[in-house]
């Protein structure tokens, strides 16, 4: 069965891999830059596509049909279903903007640069363990993870936080595929289920929040304190 697969020569594999990773990183960084929530959701969808493409490229290179299929599944979830759900939430609440983030955009981008350096430094042991083109892209995943966390810390709208969380999740998935072509299938399924459920929970809570607080500005959530 393997011989029927289309083989990807390394000369093509590495640029494709790098392209997907670059797109992944760029979309992640763009989330920090854009303020329009709708645009942020779009960027997230694009990142999902980049992630799916990456997995497919890996799968094709390793001639692993299962991996290609997983890649398509991931794409469907992260570029299709999740953005769809978010867009629905967005429509329900009326489009909004990230008006005044806790840390402003310019600083955020500079912080992101620092985070990228940190991710690069931290990822060295991971690369050293098996220096392949795929693992060399791990710092990108870690950068996006940290950026996602940063979005969570600094963005005031509920939806932005959801996107931040999903950025982290994308980054983790990417790390998984870059390092070992993914975790065992049962676990991968479970993880995807959980992410989906988490987003649904977020959506329900956003609805309730809107009902209770009249908006989704997380700064309003200050009633429980010491």
């Amino acid at each position: 069965m393997t011989e029927t697969m289309f083989t990807l020569p390394p000369s093509l594999y590495v640029p494709l891999l790098d392209l997907a990773c670059g797109a992944f990183l760029l979309t992640g960084m763009m989330v920090l830059w854009r303020r329009d929530l709708a645009a942020i959701v779009r960027l997230f969808a694009l990142q999902g596509i980049a992630l799916a493409a990456l997995i497919v490229v890996l799968g094709v290179y390793e001639q692993d049909v299962e991996l290609v299929a997983v890649g398509l599944g991931v794409g469907a979830l992260r570029a299709g279903l999740l953005p769809y759900l978010m867009r629905r939430a967005l429509i329900a609440g009326g489009a909004g903007r990230e008006v005044r983030p806790v840390v402003n955009v310019a600083t955020s981008l500079l912080v992101a640069a620092v985070l990228a350096m940190l991710a690069y430094a931290v990822a060295q042991p991971l690369i050293r363990l098996s220096p392949t083109p795929a693992t060399q892209a791990v710092p990108i995943a870690l950068t996006v993870l940290l950026v996602g966390f940063f979005v969570l810390v600094t963005r005031r709208r509920a939806l932005s936080q959801v996107v931040g969380f999903l950025l982290m999740d994308n980054a983790i998935t990417m790390t998984a595929f870059l390092t070992t072509s993914g975790v065992p299938l049962v676990v991968e399924l479970g993880i995807s289920m959980d992410v989906l459920l988490a987003v649904l929970v977020f959506q329900v809570l956003t609805t309730r929040m809107r009902a209770a607080f009249g908006g989704t500005d997380l700064d309003e959530l200050r009633e429980l304190h010491d």
Partner: peptide, 20 residues
């Protein structure tokens, strides 16, 4: 008490700084 002001951003920032 300023450690627990209720701001979810602050709470997440604790984790963010600890992680970095």
């Amino acid at each position: 008490r300023h450690l627990a002001t209720g701001s979810v951003h602050r709470y997440l920032a604790y984790g963010f700084w600890a992680l970095t």
